[in-house]
Design a protein around this nucleic acid. Structure first.
Length: 294
DNA sequence: ACCCAGGTCATCA
DNA sequence: TGATGACCTGGG
């Protein structure tokens, strides 16, 4: 975790343990951070740009100021949390020990709830590469441009930026049948039928119920939004990878999502979301079909 | 041509 | 409630 940081020459420097840019930004939880050079990533959240460079456990943050860093990015990057402690607590058996060693620099980002919602609507029955492409397309059409060191980055559009558009207006981003889902989300959030801004205050059940009012939002998408945007760390999103690996390691049989979620809750309690992320990253990066440790 | 990808929906019993 | 197909799109 981050203990303190220093500001000089418009740069913020800090030593942070259990943090790796590639693991955190490429583990499938977010879709808008891009590698711009070796060990350097550039991203935007809620219209704020940030450049991060990593040298082992030393980090340099650029494009921000002390106030924004302390009041926004510290929380976004979850830098106040002791992930050494998280890893220790979820490493309940040998496979999880392996998974947490493999992804020991993963942090769960606190993303904008609306961005997480739309991103994971797009994620359904889709692959990560194409999800990124579609999300980028949505931003370049509807988002506000932000300039940084010659890069033009488009912020993620707010509901009001998209409101008034129809499915046809989303044709260029090639999101297929998900266009209708996105429009439904835009309308319900914009008109106040869904209170996306309150999911962090709600409990897990309330949050899930609220999110699933939207077309295209089922249990898996709701779980992702609650975990990555709603800080509901007991959430255990069950996709094809997590299903495979959880069944193989713990259940030893074909199981329904609710059974998979409940055993995760038994093993890791309100830290199940962290466990899920380590397992997902480990299984997917190693293309594990059975979940067995190699 | 067929299958898959961080699933959900409509339909049917 | 629970099971079964269909589904935009692009890559292997």
């Amino acid at each position: 975790m981050l203990k303190d940081f220093s500001v000089m020459n418009n740069e913020i420097q800090a030593k942070i343990t259990e943090f790796d840019l590639e693991q955190t930004f490429e583990c499938g939880q977010c879709f808008r951070w891009n590698k711009v050079y070796e060990n350097g990533y550039l991203g935007v959240s809620r219209g704020r740009v940030l450049e991060i460079e990593q040298k082992s456990d030393r980090f340099i943050f650029r494009g921000t100021d002390r106030d924004t860093f302390e009041n926004y990015w510290m929380d976004y990057l979850d830098l106040r949390r002791d992930y050494g402690e998280i890893i220790e607590k979820v490493s309940t058996e040998k496979n999880m020990i392996k998974a947490t060693q493999y992804g020991n620099g993963i942090r769960i980002l606190l993303q904008d709830e609306w961005e997480a919602l739309v991103s994971f609507i797009i994620s359904s029955n889709n692959n990560i590469k194409r999800i990124k492409k579609i999300v980028d397309g949505l931003c370049s059409i509807f988002g506000n441009p932000v300039e940084y060191k010659g890069h033009v980055i488009f912020a993620f559009p707010n509901p009001e930026d998209i409101y008034g558009s129809g499915c046809d207006d989303l044709g260029d981003i090639k999101c297929g049948y998900r266009a209708g889902y996105i429009i439904d989300a835009v309308e319900k959030v914009h008109l106040g039928e869904v209170d996306i801004g309150s999911i962090r205050k709600m409990n897990y059940q309330q949050g899930a119920k609220e999110l699933m009012k939207i077309k295209g939002v089922g249990p898996k998408v709701a779980d992702c939004v609650l975990l990555y945007g709603g800080a509901k760390y007991e959430s255990y999103p069950v996709d094809v990878w997590v299903k495979r690996v959880t069944e193989a390691l713990y259940l030893k049989k074909d199981s329904k999502p609710d059974e998979i979620k409940s055993i995760a809750r038994e093993m890791w309690g309100d830290l199940a979301g962290f466990a899920q992320q380590y397992l997902f990253y480990y299984a997917r990066e190693n293309q594990l079909e059975t979940g067995e440790v190699k």
